[in-house]
Amino acid sequence: MRFMVIIKADADSEAGVMPSEQLLTEMGRYNEELVKAGVMLAGEGLHPSAKGARVRFNGSARTVIDGPFAETRELIAGFWLWQVRSKEEAIEWLKRCPTPMADGCEVELRQVFEAADFGAELTPELQAQEDRLREQMARPSQAGTA
């Protein structure tokens, strides 16, 4: 099963304060452990919300809202995508993580839906489409071609 590990933002991450060399070193070692164990599928830090945008959907209308966004506790500073056997295993890995933010923080763990979770609504045709898309995503492509 896959889990998204969501590192919540804080005032420093939203201000663009970069992590210390010590934290980068500790996180590098931790990420190496995750990779060697076959747990880590992806992981990245995110720029502050001031560099981001949101798109609000209301019927056919689309409204763009530029950052920054006020509620820091609702923002994400980074993430990992992990493959583990259970929620308990993901929690054990997460408990070994160096503290991501200088003043402490909260890290959220959320299971990613798998095809089987959608039941009969995921028809064989939709499953085939999903399989084709995943295969295409696995191949190198040119970024930014929309």
Rank of each mutant, 00 (worst) to 15 (best):
I91G: 03
M27R: 13
A70R: 15
E92M: 01
W93P: 05
G52Q: 14
A11C: 03
S49V: 09
E92W: 04
E92F: 00
A53Y: 12
E21T: 09
R62Y: 03
L46Y: 07
V55F: 01
L94C: 11
V55H: 07
G38F: 02
L41E: 06
S49E: 02
D66I: 12
D12R: 15
R73K: 15
L94R: 11
A70V: 09
A15G: 07
E71C: 03
K51T: 15
L46A: 03
Q83D: 08
E44S: 03
A90L: 05
E33T: 14
D66H: 14
M18R: 13
A15H: 08
A90P: 06
V55G: 05
R96S: 05
M18N: 06
R96E: 03
G28S: 11
E32F: 02
E71V: 13
F69I: 10
R85G: 10
E89Y: 04
A50L: 06
R29A: 12
S20L: 04
A53H: 14
M18F: 08
S86R: 06
D12N: 07
A77C: 10
I91E: 03
I91C: 04
E71H: 10
M27K: 01
G43S: 04
R62I: 11
P19M: 06
I65G: 03
R85Y: 02
A37L: 00
Q22C: 00
G16V: 11
Y30F: 13
Y30H: 09
P19L: 01
Q83Y: 05
G38P: 07
G78R: 14
G16L: 08
V64M: 09
E88A: 10
R29E: 11
S86L: 02
E21F: 02
E88R: 13
V84A: 01
P98R: 08
L81M: 13
T25P: 02
P19H: 10
P68E: 02
E74H: 14
G16M: 12
A42W: 02
V84W: 00
E33P: 00
F57S: 12
E21S: 10
K95M: 07
K87S: 00
F79M: 07
G59D: 06
L94Q: 13
L75V: 13
T72P: 04
L34Y: 02
I91R: 06
I65V: 14
